[in-house]
């Protein structure tokens, strides 16, 4: 990290001269202790540390407690709180209109796993460039405590009784749709959330992070698999993750057997240090197998599950001009008289 950004070891201003204050949003109106609030804090931290230009960020969301959070971070960024389950399509449109924007999408498990599952999968399939965060609490917070489709079998809720249906695993869904960046994390694991966010924000294409984010009001009882206690007790990190920005000068020692570096587009890297198991995050089969087993064995595995930097993004597959469509002038958009006449000739 460059020296100017540090005073007493604590960064006060980032590379573009902004303080972390500049990345804050309005006061949260969510319940105190809600997991979503912790994620908000990490988004602020990640954006600050990456020196994102706020006006180049768009904050997108669906509907739910989770989807309210774009109001609570980066108030100097544009945002769109859209419809329940439909944030993927609005985001697709926005980044088609302006390919220079960095989209951060916030969704919930109801928003993505139920009403929005179709849009979610098609967004992934198109590889729309977006950091897609699912704040997953296994419950519908905003409508007060119904089960969501990510709730585990046998889970109980005061209002909704016992869940008997198998859960939808957002990460498996993302993998099945060929997502190039799939991660799972835990709102109680601030550092991992932050490092994953920075990596996702530097990724070209759809980056899905499913973050278990306890709902303290409706689903935080001790036998809930989406509670803080459960997460703290059961989280198994696949790797120790460190995001290394391009502007950092690092010495990479490729020999260390337990460490692995993933090169992202335009220079930054993700350093993955092996923890318990041997795991290759570039192998999709392994990722699916790992998740299926985790689902069977009730394991809570977090980390970077899969990464593939090779897929073309939506903009690339569409051969779009490099100037954002929204910025094209009338001269660039209105065909010439000569082209107009060429078409008219077809009707003569």
């Amino acid at each position: 990290m460059t020296v100017e950004t540090k005073t007493n070891g604590k960064p006060h201003v980032n590379r573009i001269g902004l303080t972390s204050q500049d990345y804050r949003g309005g006061e949260t109106t969510l319940c105190q202790g809600c997991g979503h609030n912790s994620i908000t804090s990490q988004i602020i931290a990640a954006a600050f540390e990456l020196s994102l230009a706020p006006h180049q960020v768009i904050k997108m969301s669906g509907i739910g407690c989770s989807s309210k959070t774009p109001a609570y971070f980066m108030s100097r960024s544009f945002g769109f709180n859209t419809l329940h389950g439909r944030m993927p399509s609005v985001t697709t449109g926005a980044v088609l209109a302006n390919r220079t924007l960095l989209a951060i999408g916030i969704s919930g498990d109801g928003d993505t796993g139920s009403i929005g599952l179709g849009q979610f999968k098609h967004m992934v399939r198109r590889n729309v460039p977006v950091v897609y965060i699912v704040e997953n609490n296994g419950v519908y917070g905003l409508t007060k405590g119904q089960f969501s489709a990510t709730a585990d079998v046998g889970q109980t809720l005061k209002y909704a009784g016992t869940n008997v249906l198998p859960p939808i695993d957002i990460c498996i869904e993302a993998l099945a749709a060929d997502c190039g960046f799939v991660a799972r994390s835990f709102a109680g694991d601030a550092k991992q959330v932050r490092e994953l966010l920075k990596a996702a924000m530097s990724f070209h294409g759809t980056a899905v992070i499913d973050i278990i984010s306890p709902c303290v009001t409706f689903n935080n009882h001790h036998d809930s698999t989406k509670s803080y206690d459960y997460g703290k007790a059961h989280e198994e990190r696949l790797q120790d993750i460190q995001f290394i920005p391009r502007f950092d000068e690092v010495h990479i020692d490729y020999d260390e057997g337990d460490e692995r570096y993933v090169q992202l587009h335009d220079g930054p890297m993700i350093k993955l240090r092996k923890l318990g198991r041997d795991y290759d995050p570039t192998n999709k089969w392994h990722a699916i197998e790992l998740l299926e087993r985790a689902r069977q064995n009730h394991e809570f595995i977090t980390g970077l599950l899969y990464i593939n930097t090779q897929r073309q993004t939506l903009h690339e597959t569409m051969h779009l001009t490099s100037t954002p469509l929204a910025y094209l002038s009338e001269e660039e958009l209105r065909p010439s008289r000569e082209r107009f006449e060429r078409v008219m000739q077809r009707f003569m």
Binding site: I58, V90, L96, N98, L320, L325, A326
Partner: peptide
């Protein structure tokens, strides 16, 4: 220009709303 065939009309509407908002 971008002409995009979507998964349904809800998505088609969502895309044009997002695009219109961003200036297309």
């Amino acid at each position: 220009y971008a002409i995009i065939q979507t998964e349904d009309e809800i998505a088609a509407a969502g895309i044009i709303v997002g695009a219109g908002w961003a200036g297309a």
